[in-house]
């Protein structure tokens, strides 16, 4: 205590702040449920190559009858070319999670940069950036993503880019608003009066206050990015070389699975999307509740 001095105390207090956050998060039932589902889905998606044989995905190497209802050997039936729906759904999770998180990360980076720049430098920079943000906020993001993925070459990278560059405006608005709020706080004024410059104010006060909320929003962005990915794949704009839930639903529609009443082909991919999106949404909302002091009722 005496030799290490107070800095040792300060370091010791950090993990306890994290633990406190986790304790608050644990009280959010929906968030814990969502997190459990996510851990399970991610583990399953990662273990797909270990537990299953990707040969079953090759249309040329299957011998089953097409559109067979669930039964022994194929718990979830088969698709229009005789592949196991269970296997397809299992592998489909990989693309959804990959595209969802990459697109959300891209959107977070763009949004945070635009938001912090606009709020911190103000003036003309702010006017122009805000105007641009509002323009993209109003613009139907999916229509723009459709346009982008139509004209660019097909692939996972295109999808990530198309979703990432169309979903940042919300984050930018949030970050800008938060930065502006933090900058009006008397402690920022105090830091400036003490002689602190831009670097000090941004690094020690603004970013630490803004980033947790950005993290919560990004979790919510993953949810909408997964929906967007499945929609693009459903419209036939996905990566043709990879199985994804949206693409499965597209084949189901195109090959008459709906009119044939092949519910076993229709249910699993859609349910997969809904469950993963719901899990991300629940986690994001709980994080928001835990991290946003205003929602927690600690504000003025």
């Amino acid at each position: 205590m005496t030799t290490g001095g107070p800095s040792a105390d300060v370091r010791a207090r950090r993990p306890s702040a994290l633990a406190e956050g986790w304790r608050a998060y644990r009280n959010e039932r929906g968030g814990v449920f969502g997190l459990a589902v996510l851990v399970l889905v991610v583990l399953l998606a990662l273990s797909a190559p270990l537990l299953t044989d990707p040969a079953g995905l090759d249309v040329t190497r299957v011998e089953e009858a097409p559109l067979r209802p669930p039964g022994a050997g194929h718990w979830l039936g088969t698709d229009e070319s005789g592949r196991s729906v269970l296997l397809l759904t299992w592998w489909g999770a990989r693309v959804s999670l990959l595209v969802g998180s990459c697109a959300a990360a891209l959107s977070m980076v763009i949004g945070t940069l635009v938001g912090v720049t606009a709020a911190h430098f103000g003036g003309w920079t702010d006017t122009v950036l805000l105007r641009l943000t509002d323009f993209f906020l109003v613009l139907p993001a999916l229509v723009l993503a459709i346009a982008l993925s139509t004209v660019l070459s097909r692939g996972v990278f295109t999808i990530v880019l198309a979703i990432g560059v169309t979903s940042w405006p919300q984050t930018a608005r949030l970050v800008r608003a938060q930065t502006l709020t933090v900058q009006t706080r008397p402690y920022v004024e105090r830091a400036r009066a003490l002689g602190g410059g831009h670097r000090h104010v941004l690094g020690r006060h603004v970013l630490p206050a803004v980033l947790p909320l950005v993290f919560a929003t990004t979790t919510l962005t993953v949810a909408s990015a997964i929906i967007a990915e499945s929609t693009l794949s459903f419209l036939g704009l996905g990566d043709p070389s990879r199985i994804s839930w949206g693409a499965m639903l597209k084949s189901a529609m195109d090959t008459g699975a709906v009119t044939a009443g092949a519910w076993w082909y229709l249910f699993p991919p859609g349910l997969g999307i809904a469950v993963v999106v719901l899990a991300f949404t629940l986690c994001g909302r709980s994080l928001e509740t835990v991290l946003n002091p205003r929602l927690r009722g600690e504000g003025r």
Partner: peptide, 20 residues
């Protein structure tokens, strides 16, 4: 308002020294 809720008393007092 003048104290950053995320900083300990030590950090708040030492801020001036660190800036300089």
């Amino acid at each position: 308002g003048a104290l950053n809720p995320r900083h300990t008393v030590y950090e708040a007092v030492a801020e001036g020294l660190r800036i300089h």
